[in-house]
Nucleic acid binder design. Structure first.
Lengths: 255, 255
DNA sequence: CGTCTTCAATAACGTATGTTACATTGCACA
DNA sequence: TGTGCAATGTAACATACGTTATTGAAGACG
């Protein structure tokens, strides 16, 4: 229930002024809404009104075919923004649903107009957010088109792990992980049964420890190798600055 | 070798002023480059400098895994812009290569700054372009995750067809189609052999006529149904305005 | 403290799509 | 006007993953 994750994330990329902070702080406390787990926030076909900032909890974007086949096309973690400026479109082409209980702040068109008019650093930060989200979507395309079930699952776990880490939501080598195997199936395009098989294999290889609603990644670099994971698409760095967020200590490399 | 397709496309969505036209016209004639077919315009890992506007020809974005597996993640048709504001990122996470001979205009950071400062209609139009590209990428995720080979191929052909139509590049029910079966394989995540099988099936069903470098779609609505194609994600309409670009005459529906 | 429901686990079997191999067509260029 | 290479087409065979079904564990809820 805070915008700490958003600010932490954006500041990896752009330095925001005290005024910028104040603007974001006000926007994220003005119109806050709460949802239970497994409910829709927005439905395909609706007219988009506000932009949603995830303050806490996990959500996802999904699309469905007439016959019910469902694809999760992205996950939203705390600090994520659901489509800067969507309101210029006439209708939503996808739905947004919660995974866990979720709090969001609704950001209005006026807010974005104000930002555009007078807060260039935030504009840049929002463009960064937009471009990274596009890159993530491309990488999902890559995963679904080319990676095997094992690589694909490993890749998804790496991505979520790094994004959580950037948002400051990991503890040591573990993190909250509320996705069910059904969620993972919808996101990876695999059947639930095969998701199960794949997770077993990752467990057997010692790449993940997944139990209850907690995920641990004891050897991130090994999981990354299994996934053919190249972190460049997350753009977690900026001119001159190099985040070591994607690096693991050298001694872990041996494993 | 013109920006007609871009303007035609953007004006479906926003009305641009004569000054806007002049701005775009100047930007698209200042720094033009030409490429042969099957060459790279930009390579993964490079520092993005300019934004590229496709004036003529077909290109694609692609990513490659260390072991050579290749995925085309999107196609660029005339009038398409390759990532508004990419230059804020430190390095490219994908490559851009040509399919046919291609002419592009390089749009500088200064151009976008000028647009942001004084041409709100163009800003809106560029946001529309950005949001639609994101929606297309999501739909590819859907296709790769849930659609069968046949549906997926049909869907891709529908999408390209409608985008070409919006750019004013179709003639009657046919259009130029320079993609090889290898290109289609890289884009759909199928093997070349299965692409061939799938095209044969679409031909046998009378849904497409594909020969040489020409594609004809005699019954778009039937192809759309085979693809489970819902055109909403292309957002080819705007408040009050309804494009009939996606509709076929009623008599075609019967087929 | 049981009872319901969801989630996870596992097995047996089916199939859409991949792979390898080779023949054919078509077109660029000498 | 051949001649060579890329693109297309087809067949036989292999496999990664899907489907259906059943069981057990784990939370949710009265």
């Amino acid at each position: 229930m805070s915008l700490a994750s958003l600010v932490r994330k954006l500041e990896q990329f752009v330095r925001l002024s005290p005024v910028d902070h104040a603007i974001l702080n006000r926007a994220s406390t003005e119109r806050v809404r709460h949802f239970g787990p497994r409910v829709d926030i927005v439905r395909e076909g609706e007219k988009p009104k506000d932009v949603h900032l995830i303050l806490s909890g996990w959500a996802c974007r999904y699309k469905q075919l007439e016959d019910g086949r469902r694809q999760v096309v992205s996950f939203f973690l705390p600090g994520d923004i659901c489509d800067v400026n969507v309101f210029i479109l006439r209708e939503m082409d996808h739905s947004i649903g919660t995974i866990t209980a979720v709090s969001i702040a609704d950001l209005s068109r006026e807010f974005f107009d104000r930002v555009a008019a007078g807060h260039p650093r935030i504009v840049t930060a929002f463009w960064w957010e937009t471009l990274v989200n596009a890159a993530i979507q491309r990488e999902w395309t890559m995963s679904l088109g080319q990676r095997t079930a094992l690589e694909r699952m490993a890749h998804l776990l790496c991505e979520i792990w790094l994004r959580l880490r950037l948002a400051g939501l990991t503890q040591g080598d573990s993190c909250d992980f509320p996705l069910t195997q059904g969620d993972l199936a919808d996101a990876t395009g695999l059947s639930k049964v095969h998701v199960n098989r794949t997770l077993q294999e990752l467990r057997a290889d010692g790449l993940i420890v997944l139990k209850g609603k907690t995920l641990a990644v004891p050897k991130l670099d090994r999981l990354m190798r299994a996934a053919l994971f190249n972190p460049n698409y997350l753009h977690m760095d900026h001119e001159g600055r190099q985040l070591d967020v994607v690096m693991t200590p050298p001694d872990a490399v041996a494993g």
